[in-house]
Amino acid sequence: MMTLKVNGREHQVDVEADTPLLYVLRDDLKLNAAKYGCGLGQCGSCTVIVDGKAVLSCVVPMVLLEGKHITTLEGLGTIAEPAPIQRAFMEEQAAQCGYCIPGMMMRAQALLQKNSKPTDEQIRAELEPHLCRCGTHMRILRAIHRAARLMDTADASPAASGSAR
């Protein structure tokens, strides 16, 4: 049994220590957002945030995760109450098939938590590990810029921020 902290909740999971985080999220915790794309660390579709850093969950074994805080796209918001990054992707209609999108969003979220006003160049550099086959790139970039603006205004207006309630 291992203890895993995901989206603010502790879970006891019975898995072998070499199991990559991705399969524990999907198979044991029944979460959908982190996707299997390659299992090789080549595409980014499995990206989640571990202690504030974007991580490729398909290549991180459980043994390295004891005591760490893991955030997946599910932990950011819901359809009814979307996080700024989720609102931004909806508003920009930044998806075709959408399979690559959760991973992109988690990488962007980690970036925006560190740097609330990234330049276009910084965003592109940050997204380098991520592939999108549908060619949604232009919209993904626009959505991340929009998310940065939304987070900015969310910070500025306490009524709109989650912690105020």
Binding site: N32, Y36, I79, P82, F89, M90, Q93, A95, I101, P102
Partner: peptide
Amino acid sequence: PRVDIPTKVTGGAAYVQD
């Protein structure tokens, strides 16, 4: 707005993979 996007950007079950 596309009907499928909200589910896809909030981690809902959207694909046969899910």
